[in-house]
Design a protein around this nucleic acid. Structure first.
Lengths: 154, 154
DNA sequence: AGGCGTCATTTTGCACGCAAAGTAATTGAC
DNA sequence: GTCAATTACTTTGCGTGCAAAATGACGCCT
């Protein structure tokens, strides 16, 4: 019955445009899911995920310019400017004009920012726990992502 | 000389908070880099990456409700509402209230939306070319991302 | 010294991403 | 049948992410 029905909801022939076979969509979804997972953990620290990334970068090495920070975090300058303003409003960082080159600004962790690090130490463990991925897979994933970032360098 | 110098730019002992060993940061960077790569390709179609994802979902199966679309694309409803309005403004989709349940809306691809599909067929190839990743790695990456999404289901 | 190109950062404008609150229609309990 | 809970979607508010334009400082060339 219903011979030659024009199958409107096709799902007909598989296409390169099928969402379910797109690596990019998986990657995009995973990144969003991850940020969502961080949100719960980080709200105790009153940080967003990008702010947390910037703080990690500064905890590792501070007294850096915005362009240094941009290179290390891979956030562009136009993203960093307002983000740093918010971290400054929270008294987590200090920003001062570099002596010798007034274009440059030097960002460093404040006293409060340094004390926040202690609470932040627990974050990676909590996320690792929520994600629950074998170390080997995590490394593989990281490697593939880094390769991808490398290929897509602007 | 400079004995016992308080090493201010430490990089001292490695920490779990070091940016460079965080899988999440790599994933986040990769997703952003991908969207950036898509931007150039997609601007010819006057689509953003999320809009392209929605169109792919609809090309695959249309006549769906917003919550169906939300499940398939993994975008939340609050993201979809304005996004669909923009696709509607571009005359790529039609949205109508479902008969029998006036809360629900049914989204389908318009004539123009269907004709756009032909141009979009070229997109996956162009991205694949820019990314230049062996199929095996791509599959592995997709698998790991899907696992992660699964673990982090809300 | 004056001027011009370059560099670091900021601003602007637009589109998400998402939690939370709001609205309207439907269902379910009684 | 009525009314409260639920469901589907919209709205609001805030923080990115980024291209492009604007701003201000530096540095070199002559």
């Amino acid at each position: 019955m219903t011979p030659m029905k024009k199958n409107k909801d096709q799902q007909g022939e598989p296409s390169a445009l099928d969402l379910d076979r797109q690596v990019c969509h998986s990657l995009y979804s995973a990144a969003n899911a991850l940020v969502r997972a961080y949100r719960q953990t980080l709200e105790k620290l009153d940080l967003t995920y990008p702010q947390y990334v910037v703080m990690m970068s500064l905890w590792q090495k501070d007294g850096v310019s915005i362009s240094n920070l941009s290179a290390h975090t891979r956030f562009d300058a136009g993203t960093l400017t307002p983000l740093l303003r918010r971290l400054q409003d929270k008294r987590l960082i200090d920003v001062k004009v570099a002596k010798g080159d007034e274009r440059r600004k030097i960002v460093s962790v404040s006293r409060q920012g340094r004390s926040l690090k202690k609470s932040a130490e627990k974050v990676p463990g909590q996320i690792a726990c929520a994600v629950d991925m074998p170390a080997e897979d995590a490394l593989k994933l990281k490697g593939l992502c880094e390769t991808l970032v490398g290929k897509l360098k602007r």
